[in-house]
Computed example of a mutant assay.
Amino acid sequence: FSSLGLQEDEEEAWQNCHSLKALIADPAVASLPAHMPAKPLREYEPHELQDSPESTEAVLGQLIRWEGLIGKTKKTASELLARPPPKFILDVTVAIKAATGFPPDLEDNWPEAREERLARFAYVSEAVSGALGVSIDFDAVDVLKGKEVQKTLLLLQLLALAAVRAPRPEGHQSSDFERAPGVARAIELPAMLDAMDRCIQAAKEQADAKRSAAEAAVSDGSRSLEEKIAVLERQLAEESRARHASEEELLKVERLLQETAASVKNVTQNGELAE
């Protein structure tokens, strides 16, 4: 195992467990789509919001109950948001005001006159723009005509962001949809359990990788020591063989000297006898 591989495993484990920690701190994050930043809505910047029906349903679902707005229709919130009727958009806006008190001066009735409807949607856009300090590309006429749906959906998400950041008006009663910190709804539990499983699995894999790396290091160390001992043994054996060969050569020389000395002695003795 390389140190780079271990570092990558640690980074993945940290990210998975950090995501779980964020979900525990604010379970509402669990309802956000995976492609959106996993953080509380109030920490979002306007440019991080998206204009899809899925993301709009998730973001607004942190403040309102879709069941009450959908009513008896067989369509889901995402299906309604894909082509939102003007009255449905106003109903969503009114529900956000009921939950948060924002926009403060929004009337909750559905105007009969076209100009009044345009003025109502224009007011929402201006209130959101002023609260967030951003320019919003929105035309109320498009809402009534069913055009530029993505711009309308983005406005609704910006409305949710402005509402969650805005201070509660004096005397405003908390919505029954609000909850104590750390309390998860049933719809959020699958994502939280999945994050918990990923965190545990990543931590287990990291521990296994570290243990394997440690075992490999010990094995390498033992093998290295064994190799050094083997080299020393070979060197000693070679030195022993060399010493043995030298001793044999010395013995041969000694025998040769002894034989030579004996031959010289014999020659000397024979010479003396001849005289």
Rank of each mutant, 00 (worst) to 15 (best):
residue 254 E to N: 09
residue 243 R to E: 06
residue 245 A to H: 11
residue 255 R to Y: 07
residue 149 V to G: 11
residue 205 E to D: 15
residue 137 D to M: 04
residue 99 A to V: 03
residue 188 E to Y: 02
residue 176 D to L: 12
residue 143 V to H: 07
residue 210 K to G: 04
residue 203 A to H: 08
residue 44 Y to V: 10
residue 206 Q to C: 10
residue 266 N to V: 10
residue 180 A to E: 08
residue 261 A to H: 04
residue 204 K to V: 14
residue 135 S to F: 09
residue 246 S to Y: 14
residue 246 S to D: 09
residue 256 L to E: 04
residue 41 L to N: 05
residue 34 A to N: 13
residue 20 L to G: 06
residue 44 Y to I: 05
residue 243 R to G: 00
residue 15 Q to F: 07
residue 70 I to T: 09
residue 70 I to M: 11
residue 206 Q to Y: 15
residue 164 V to E: 11
residue 83 R to P: 02
residue 241 R to V: 14
residue 201 Q to L: 06
residue 67 E to T: 14
residue 186 A to W: 09
residue 257 L to T: 02
residue 124 V to A: 08
residue 68 G to D: 13
residue 189 L to C: 02
residue 139 D to H: 14
residue 172 H to M: 13
residue 173 Q to W: 00
residue 43 E to P: 02
residue 63 L to E: 08
residue 121 F to A: 08
residue 251 L to K: 13
residue 83 R to Q: 14
residue 158 L to M: 05
residue 147 K to L: 15
residue 177 F to I: 03
residue 55 S to Y: 08
residue 52 S to N: 08
residue 1 F to H: 05
residue 143 V to C: 13
residue 20 L to F: 08
residue 171 G to Y: 05
residue 184 A to Q: 00
residue 111 P to S: 04
residue 57 E to P: 00
residue 9 D to W: 06
residue 38 A to I: 03
residue 155 L to R: 12
residue 109 N to L: 03
residue 79 E to C: 11
residue 10 E to T: 09
residue 76 T to I: 12
residue 229 I to N: 05
residue 116 E to M: 01
residue 270 N to C: 03
residue 89 I to S: 07
residue 260 T to G: 00
residue 189 L to F: 07
residue 232 L to M: 15
residue 134 V to G: 01
residue 120 R to Y: 00
residue 181 P to F: 07
residue 44 Y to R: 07
residue 212 S to R: 12
residue 62 Q to W: 01
residue 33 P to M: 07
residue 82 A to P: 02
residue 134 V to M: 08
residue 230 A to C: 02
residue 237 A to E: 15
residue 52 S to I: 03
residue 188 E to K: 01
residue 273 L to T: 12
residue 12 E to A: 12
residue 242 A to K: 12
residue 35 H to Y: 15
residue 257 L to E: 14
residue 243 R to N: 13
residue 150 Q to M: 01
residue 74 K to A: 12
residue 13 A to G: 14
residue 230 A to N: 07
residue 68 G to P: 09
residue 66 W to R: 04
residue 69 L to S: 14
residue 165 R to Q: 15
residue 206 Q to P: 01
residue 64 I to G: 09
residue 37 P to V: 01
residue 161 L to W: 10
residue 215 E to Y: 13
residue 60 L to V: 12
residue 217 A to P: 03
residue 200 I to F: 11
residue 89 I to E: 05
residue 181 P to K: 06
residue 104 P to G: 02
residue 22 A to P: 00
residue 213 A to Y: 12
residue 274 A to Q: 13
residue 62 Q to L: 11
